[in-house]
């Protein structure tokens, strides 16, 4: 049931138009952070207000929504956001990645390749990839304007000098269509290769920082690296202990106080589906 006290998908129409215009400019300038007048949402900043506003501006009554946090549909914040849209937009929801038309995510890209009918909405905490190198917005904006990314390369190179490897494992910076350097949100770098050449539309919302950016489908996205230190997507060197998958991103679960560990798929829907398929196969 839609909550009649609020407009469809919560936001008023003027706010949605403002966000929609920002989204379109984001698509027209891939990887560029479009400022938008983020609104105060009924959930705290830092808990997905940017993603929620983008989703609210995109949802149609016919959509099927999936919400994940850390790859899982049942994490508390994912549950909370999914309930919010069930209540305010009365949309169908699903846990099955393939059935969803809009997927809001925090920190993961689903394992199943996305398709042309899908929109992936990322919750972004710090949209500025240069923020920790230069805290000033006035300065980073100039760097983007001039495509001056030397500072980022210096940082990555210092990592190599110090650790022998690039010491960034999530929110690993990418360059979009050879121009803007972009923060992919805190996804593990394992997911970075899925950013580029993706069939789905990818939208990024940072509520507190008031920025929206986007990747159209089939956009060229390159993880920053060096010839002698090429980018490497990494995961735990195990297979999933539940479904046996050897090519998925894994959570490490501590199972007792003796140091025992299990490794399980972070994408719970993918894992559950594989387990069900295996059971069905065994039953036949």
């Amino acid at each position: 049931m839609t909550d009649q006290a609020y407009n469809f998908a919560y936001l008023d129409e003027a706010t949605k138009r403002m966000i929609r215009r920002a989204l379109l400019k984001g698509l027209a300038i891939p990887g560029y952070q479009v400022p938008f007048a983020s609104r105060e949402m009924p959930m705290p900043y830092g808990w997905g207000t940017g993603g929620v506003q983008v989703t609210a501006a995109c949802l149609t009554p016919e959509d099927t929504l999936k919400v994940i946090d850390q790859g899982a549909d049942d994490t508390t914040n994912a549950v909370s956001i999914r309930k919010f849209f069930e209540r305010t937009a009365d949309v169908a929801t699903t846990e099955a990645t393939a059935e969803a038309t809009v997927i809001q995510t925090r920190h993961r890209i689903p394992e199943v390749p996305l398709t042309e009918g899908q929109i992936l909405v990322y919750q972004v905490p710090i949209p500025e990839p240069l923020r920790f190198l230069e805290p000033r917005e006035s300065e980073t904006r100039k760097m983007h304007a001039l495509s001056e990314y030397g500072l980022m390369h210096v940082k990555l190179y210092e990592d190599i000098a110090r650790h022998g490897a690039i010491a960034t494992s999530y929110a690993y910076p990418v360059q979009v269509e050879g121009h803007y350097v972009m923060d992919p949100s805190p996804i593990p770098k394992f997911d970075n290769p899925k950013l580029g050449d993706n069939a789905a539309i990818q939208l990024f919302g940072a509520g507190r920082e008031q920025r929206i950016y986007a990747l159209p489908p089939y956009t060229r996205v390159v993880s920053l690296d060096f010839e002698d230190h090429p980018f490497e997507p990494t995961k735990a060197d195990h297979s999933c202990d539940l479904c046996g998958a050897g090519d998925t991103y894994l959570d490490e679960v501590i199972t007792d106080d003796q140091g025992s560990r299990m490794f399980v798929c972070s994408d719970t829907n993918y894992c559950v589906t594989r387990q069900a398929e295996a059971e069905a196969g065994a039953a036949q």
Partner: peptide, 20 residues
């Protein structure tokens, strides 16, 4: 139905811009 029709129309605008 302003809110819902605008949402449907925006999806078309979004798809158009995302897939030139």
């Amino acid at each position: 139905d302003p809110a819902r029709d605008a949402a449907r129309a925006f999806r078309l605008c979004l798809n158009a811009m995302a897939r030139p």
